[in-house]
Every structure is written in structure tokens, then in C-alpha cells.
Amino acid sequence: MKYAFYPGCVSRGGCPELYPSAVKVAEKLGIELDELKSVGCTGAGVLPQNITDPINARTFAKAEQLGLPIMTICSTCTGVMAQANYRLKEDPNYREKVNKEFLADEGLEYKGTTEVKHLLWVLFEDYGIERLQSLIQRPLKGLKVSPFYGCYLRRPLKP
């Protein structure tokens, strides 16, 4: 299992424990990570779509070149990229326009094949809960869990 790793700014800023712990988890589980370093911010839903869709398309094209799905560890990055990817995949004319106007200068093209997945989805869908269960060393029984995974992880609900 190998992913193009997109850590995002928070795991290097306000939540610095996130980056090393994700890397350690991946190491332990034998998930290979190829970090995308020369790509831009997703826009986090703050910057307008007409600016961030091309920047995200560039990220998807870079992962596509590596032939890898993108793995994130930030709910906001996941949500914003998944929405942008949905628009670019669904509408070939729009993708074509973004490619021509923004990516062609660099010799890049996004063909619309990249997947964006958060680490939690990777664990759940690709790695498998049963496989994960077999690795438990210290069960967290009796612990009350209050999850905050971030609603963006589930966007868009449409396939």
C-alpha cells in the first residue's frame, strides 16, 4: 500500500503532533508514504473556488504522475480537495479548461483519476478493520471516546 502523502499546514503548525504520529502509524502498518512537497494549499474553504480549483488540480496531477492516491491527515484538506476533485472529475469540459489555462504552462495535465482519502478512510477501507484489530496490543476497553473526525471527511456524500 502506497500513497501520495499530503500532510497540510496544521500538522506542521498548530497541531504538530499529528505529522509524526501519522508517519509512525503508517510505518508500523507497512503503509508507504511518498510526501507531496511541491504542491499548494487547498484553500481550506476560505479562498474562492476559481483560485483553489486550479491549485488543487495541480496537486491531483502531481499524484496522478506518481500513480498514487492522495492520503491526507486533515479533515479540512480532505473535504476541500474531495469537492474540487468531484467538480473536476464530473465535468470534463471544466477539467479541460483548468488544464489548458493553468496546468499546461508547467507541462502538467490532470486526467481525472486521482483519489483523495483521509488516513481514517485508508485504515477503514484499504487496510481493513479486522486486520487492524489483529494488531491490538493494549485494548482501550472502558475508555469513553468522543470522536471529532471533522464533518469534511464525509464530503461529498455523492460517489
Partner: peptide, 8 residues
């Protein structure tokens, strides 16, 4: 990235 940003 800046170039794309400014063009958009």
C-alpha cells in the same frame, strides 16, 4: 503556485 493564483 503563485503564478496560478495570480492568473486566476
Amino acid at each position: 503556485i503563485k503564478k496560478i493564483f495570480e492568473k486566476a
